[in-house]
């Protein structure tokens, strides 16, 4: 890696790059340069700095990490982050599976319409969608209006609850789950289900014995995507949720914005990063990261 980085100035001066070796060997490295430089500058260095801060700010110690796992408030936030992510993942899966099934099995205007809906949802910025929930669930929003119109009295507090934040995250991450499932389900040969039927399997049995097991890679992919994105989710919980049921990224934000505790915030961020990496490592061990996007 170091050699690649030092090669950068040489290429900038032109001819100096040539004596380094045969041109054919150098070209692939040159092509890798911009991306590598960007990654190092914007990714490796900042994360390295965060890691450094977590051990050294204000003085060299493991105190921040001890605190995260010793203070009940923080362990609760850690637990809450994992529990919320799991909830969102399960709800997404339950909602997305039938949807993806219909989209992948039918080949008509219904499946096309549904697929377009999912894709539009996917392409709409998640901040826009989060603000939409702010309006929908707000005091003067449609939900409150309907509630009052039906004569139930004062509407319940919806906004700034864990319910709202879970709902918002589920909505935002649903397309990921649908598309992950769809890409796997679409590849299941329809003849397999025909074969199952010809062999005497009723539709339910054929689904359980053939379709469901073959769709499991999609279930795993979608769940990993949704779960890992959810672990570090920031905007939606902070806009729709409550500080009482804080998620880990909210805690990081709070430590920096309100307390200027850079060292402790860095340590929390590192814990989040490690947790996400562990999930992905388990996935990589059993499935392979290269298959995450279908």
């Amino acid at each position: 890696m170091a050699g690649v980085v030092t090669a950068a100035p040489a290429t900038a001066t032109g001819p100096a790059a040539v004596p380094q070796g045969p041109g054919a060997g150098a070209v692939p490295w040159l092509l890798l340069m911009p991306a590598t430089a960007a990654l190092v500058l914007l990714f490796v260095l900042p994360i390295g700095y965060v890691l450094l801060l977590s051990f050294t700010d204000p003085q060299v110690s493991l105190a921040h990490y001890q605190r995260i796992f010793a203070v009940p408030l923080y362990t609760r936030i850690l637990f809450n982050t994992f529990a919320t992510s799991l909830t969102v993942t399960v709800i997404c899966l339950l909602l997305a599976y039938p949807l993806a099934y219909v989209i992948s099995r039918r080949n008509d205007w219904i499946s096309l319409t549904l697929l377009i809906c999912v894709a539009v949802c996917f392409w709409t910025g998640f901040i826009v969608r989060t603000y939409a929930w702010l309006v929908i669930l707000g005091n003067k929003g449609p939900v409150a209006a309907v509630w009052q119109g039906l004569g139930f009295g004062a509407p319940p507090q919806l906004l700034f609850t864990s319910f709202a934040s879970t709902l918002g995250m589920t909505h935002i991450l649903l397309p990921y789950m649908v598309l992950a499932l769809y890409s796997v389900m679409k590849k299941i040969d329809p003849n397999l289900l025909r074969a199952a039927a010809s062999l005497g399997a009723r539709p339910n049995a054929a689904f359980r014995a053939v379709f469901l097991p073959l769709s499991l890679p999609g279930v795993v992919n979608g769940s990993i995507l949704v779960f890992t994105i959810c672990l570090g989710f920031f905007v939606t919980p902070i806009l729709l949720g409550t500080p009482k049921d804080m998620m880990i990224s909210q805690l990081v934000n709070q430590q920096i914005e309100e307390l200027l505790a850079w060292g402790f915030a860095s340590a929390i961020a590192v814990v989040l990063l490690v947790a996400t990496s562990i999930v992905l490592a388990i996935y990589n061990r059993f499935v392979g990261l290269d298959r995450l996007w279908g």
Partner: peptide, 10 residues
């Protein structure tokens, strides 16, 4: 029973 061109084995 049916045998398919692409085998359709599970």
């Amino acid at each position: 029973g049916m045998v398919f061109q692409n085998y359709a084995l599970f």
